[in-house]
Each structure stands twice: as C-alpha cells, then as structure tokens.
Design a protein around this nucleic acid. Structure first.
Lengths: 168, 168
DNA sequence: TCCAAACCCTTGGATGTCCTAGTATATTGC
DNA sequence: GCAATATACTAGGACATCCAAGGGTTTGGA
C-alpha cells in the first residue's frame, strides 16, 4: 500500500495509551491491534495466491473443508459451524462456488430443512491445486520462526477455547 | 453464533494437513488460521462495545488517531498510512464520521490536493468516552495472560516489520 | 393428534475492504 | 514557461461479514 513507516504505529499507540493513564491496558491494546493488522496482511497474501484460481479465502476454506469430508459433502449448517462463520456467509460462498461449477447443492436424504453441499470433480481438483499453491506461497513462507509458530498456536488456541469456540 | 464445538476445528485441520503429506507447513497453516479466527472474535467484541456510540472499529480507529494528533487534525493520506488501510477506506470512514458531526473536512493551507480531517468537539468527547469503554470491556478483559501479551507483541511485531509495515 | 417452538436456509440491508479509473493539484524536467 | 509525471482524493464495482426477517420443515409437549 505504501513504503514502510519510519516507526511502528502500534508501538506509538501503546505509548499514547501509557501517556494518557491507561498503562494497565496498553499492552493488551497493542497485542489486539497487532492481531488485527497481522490478519490483514495474511489475508492479502492469501487472496493474492488464490486469485489465479478465481477463489477467495472464504470460498477456498469451504472447498478445503469439503475436500476433507469423507463423502465430499456436508450440510450447510455443519459447514457454518466448522468454519465459524454466519450461515449467510456460507450461503453466499456456496452461491458463487456453484456458479463456478465447483460444488452443487443437493437435498438432505432425511431432513427436508437441510441442504447438502457436495464437491464436484472440478471442485476437488481445484481444491488440490489451490492448496498446493497456498502451501508453497503462503504457509511455507509465513515469516514466523518455528518456535513462534508453536507459541501462536498455543496462545491463540487458549484464547479461542476461552472465547467459547470449542470445549475440547 | 453457536455452542462450542466438541473439538478444535483448527487442530483438526492441522491433523488433516499432516495426514495428506503437508506436515512441513501444517503448523504455520494452523497458526495463520488461528490468527484469522482470533481477529474475527476480537473484532466482534470491539464492535459490540462500540455499538452504543454508533461507531464501528474503522471509524473509532480514525477518531482515536485524530485525538492523539496535537492539533486534532491530520491529512487524509497521513491517516491512511498510519492506519495502514486503503485511501478509499479512509474516505468512507470520514464520510460517515462527518455525517455524524464528529469530524469535518477542511482544505490544506498550502497543498490544494490535500484534505485535512479535523476533530469536532463532539468527536473529541466521543473518542474519550468510547476509549474508556473499549479499555474496560475489551482490552481490560482480553483473556490473554500477561506473558502471552508480551509474546504476541514481540512475535507479531517481528512479523509486521518483515512484512514491510515499518522499518524501525 | 396437533400446534407451538425450534431449526435450516435465503433474501435484503448496512458496513468495511480492496481495486480500477477519473479529476484536480503539485512538482519536475526540458 | 510548459508539458510530463507524480500525488491526493473520490466514484463505482466486486466481495465478505453480520443482522433482521421470512418461509418451509421437524420436533416435542399438551
């Protein structure tokens, strides 16, 4: 978006917080702001890697999730729960994946309320190919040191458990 | 959005990656996915805390940034650089803050291309009040242990520097 | 049995982000 | 001094996310 700033804007914000008498929450503020910015950077890298496939991260996640399901199909509500996004976001993603011929909707055999999302063979192929690129261009070059990766998994895992994402 | 899942979906994804022969990037994949999900949780908390003020996080960040500027005013391009978002996002936020009477646009005294964003007194008051609530309800109850906060600041700070956010 | 409550998905609306392009103003170089 | 380039902001479009509300299907208790 632009050239590097001369100083870390988040560290500046942390100093501002301390200067204004909010020293007790300055560090968590900085950590949370850093998470927000890191997500933005990572998302941009992911979207860039997926662009040649006509995929966005939201659509990729759904495709990948389906590719790991034994039958290659999942109920929409299940996908919503596992991806931890709003049901309407899944509807949106499925609409576009279906237009692209990567998934199809089919009725649930026993529950008339439920819609199954099923991977087409094109969808399965694209999932494989796009995962290979993501692995090579993003996950394989994350810029995180190996010990820091472990720390992140631990710290954010605890956070997500406390936030009610999972009970395990 | 729903009840806690019985198992951590990101840990499951990590196992899937390992099972499919991508063990070398499974951990970074999990760490990155965890960052994405953590951001989502934190953003939801922040938006909830700001809702009573009619603010979103994007608008709050701009308001807070202005409140720390000595003169209470900043050029839009400067705000874009410091917040590290696209210029059009700043335009969008300023439009809405201006409608709400929290900031005003004024011409730059010497550069006709530049627009200054200036805090109104209402804007300054709201910045103070909303910051107090964010500090109390979000930053003060982040759910991160103090040592983990330091780790996050260090790890994500290194990442952001490597990503070209700042050079310091 | 049968109707109310619960559940599933979709539609429509509000926001935010980015990209591309277009207009206006500054700066640079010949 | 004037044209070419660079910079600043905005308009329009594509996507994603969430919330609120609506219509269809199941479930469960009276």
């Amino acid at each position: 978006m632009g050239a590097p700033l001369p100083r870390d804007p988040i560290a500046d914000a942390q100093r501002n917080w301390e200067r204004h008498g909010w020293a007790d929450v300055a560090a968590p503020m900085a950590a949370i702001t850093a998470v927000m910015r890191t997500q933005q950077i990572l998302l941009a890298r992911i979207e860039t890697a997926l662009k040649p496939f006509g995929l966005t991260f939201a659509r990729y996640e759904l495709l990948a999730l389906l590719s790991f399901a034994r039958s290659g199909a999942l109920p929409m509500n299940k996908a919503s729960a596992l991806l931890q996004v709003h049901p309407t976001s899944v509807t949106n993603a499925v609409d576009r994946l279906q237009e692209a011929g990567l998934v199809i909707r089919s009725p649930h055999p026993t529950d008339g309320r439920t819609t199954l999302i099923e991977l087409t063979s094109e969808g399965r192929t694209l999932a494989k190919r796009s995962t290979a690129v993501l692995n090579a261009e993003v996950f394989g070059q994350s810029g995180f040191e190996a010990p820091d990766v472990d720390q992140l998994i631990r710290i954010l895992g605890n956070f997500r458990r406390n936030a009610g994402d999972f009970s395990g």
